[in-house]
Amino acid sequence: MTHPILDIDLLRVEYPSAASTSVAVQGVSITVQPGERVGLVGESGSGKSTLAFATMGLLKAPGVVTSGSISVAGRVMTGLPDSEFASMRGSSVSMIYQDPFTFLNPLVRVGDQIGEVLQLHSKASRREARVAAAVILDELGLGPGAATARKYPHQLSGGQRQRVIIGMALVGSPQLVIADEPTTALDVTVQAQILRLLSREIDVHKTALLLISHDLDVIRLMCDRVYVMLKGEVVEQGPVDQIFSAPQHPYTQALLASSRRDTVREAAQRRVALMSAGATEEGASL
């Protein structure tokens, strides 16, 4: 039997404050098997990003895991010091963030930023890291990699920067990549390129994917299984085909209807009917 690469068990995350404590994640259990593609959908405030940051050991203060556990590659991470999380980040699990404009350091050449991931884990010398960065830039369609590696982030477009971020996530050969809204800031044609690239790369590297998105179409396209989050809880989960064709929970049903623009279409049809009725009335009164 294979062990899940990610096993989140009854996790609870709170943001305590003097006035009141808000519970961002409550009793959430999620598993990702090796090589599996899992989606996490929900709207803003549903707790999906908090879950990702908790997994990376990067919860923003005062956020704190108050109960439950997170295991990565069979190792329980919750309760461990930051240094343990740091050794895991980039090598076992890495994360692709939403915004390609703020994530990269503007003062460091992109090749060095990719190479740094390997050097941090002492997986490579400086020279080896440089070569690895050039190779992965080539692989990501940013060739010639050696020349691109010498560029600074501002010399790249949004789509190119997102490729660099994908490179940083994959260069350490992690078993799991968490992608938090990786294409939300991008144009639709660039989004399609990035999704294609991400899909190909995780196939080639046999990496598991936890894809966080508010876009159900993106989840349907990229994932095998999906969890639906609402107000810090998972309300429904299952294979993508099943959830999308026969959603059980009222919230999932509402989300799908919104995504298909059902109510907007109905309003548009009402409008067309009323407008043409009005036009006939005007015609008759003339």
Binding site: E43, A254, R261, T263, V264, A268, R271, L274
Partner: peptide
């Protein structure tokens, strides 16, 4: 906006357009 909220805003715009022409 989130997709459920977006739907409500778009509906409102369509209804108002129908009303005001």
């Amino acid at each position: 906006l989130d997709v459920t909220i977006a739907g409500q805003i778009l509906e409102l715009m369509l209804d108002i357009q129908t009303e005001l022409r």
